[in-house]
Simulated scan of single mutants.
Amino acid sequence: MSEFSSALSLSSSGLRAQAQRLRHVAENIANADTPGYRRKTVAFESARGDPDAGTAPGGVTPGAVRLDQGPLRQVYDPAHPLADATGHYDSSNVNLMIEMADAREAQRSYEANLKMFDQARQMSSGLMDLLRR
């Protein structure tokens, strides 16, 4: 595998991983008011790479999706259908500030991987132009 295709493979693995992370952040934000909803998190794992499949070692893959086991927020609303005898029910454990920070971090990481992909593509194209002369 050439260095250019390795660079493209590495950056594309980062793009896929950050895209999945953004999907989970979006799900968390969408379900912030859903009673009993637990925040989803995803950790990244190092990819071994498979030369036959065209993937370089050193990339990342999203790991298993985990549910945040933190405590659910207790909300007082006696009129809510899920309220117990004291008038409380379990809301979600999604913190919108954390989700917005995660979304920003994933967006920046996605943009960095996209720039790396574009740079490798431009360098490869420039090399081909030089070789044609």
Rank of each mutant, 00 (worst) to 15 (best):
H88I: 07
N95A: 12
F4S: 09
R66V: 10
M123G: 11
T55Q: 02
G63K: 04
H88R: 13
R132H: 11
R104Y: 15
R48I: 12
A106H: 00
D33C: 07
N31I: 02
A101Y: 10
R66L: 14
S109E: 09
K115L: 12
A7W: 01
P78D: 05
D77E: 13
R38W: 04
D50K: 09
S92Y: 03
Q74D: 11
Y110K: 05
L10F: 04
P78Y: 06
F117K: 02
P51K: 11
P51L: 14
I29W: 01
A17F: 01
L82A: 13
N113F: 04
P57S: 08
T55N: 03
D102I: 07
E3N: 09
T34C: 04
M116R: 12
T61V: 15
S13I: 01
S125Y: 11
A26V: 07
A79T: 09
A79P: 03
L15A: 06
E99A: 08
G49W: 02
S46Q: 14
Q107S: 11
A17Y: 01
D118L: 13
M97I: 12
I29A: 07
L22H: 05
D118E: 14
A26K: 06
L130I: 13
M128D: 12
M1F: 11
R48V: 11
S6P: 03
A106K: 01
T61M: 13
G63H: 06
K115A: 15
N93I: 06
Y37F: 14
D84W: 09
L130P: 04
L67Y: 14
D68V: 05
L67D: 11
M1Y: 11
Q122V: 14
S5C: 08
L10K: 00
E99K: 04
M100E: 14
G54R: 08
A101C: 10
S13N: 02
V65K: 04
L8C: 05
M97A: 15
S13P: 02
R66H: 15
G58W: 06
S5Y: 12
H80M: 08
H24T: 02
Q107Y: 09
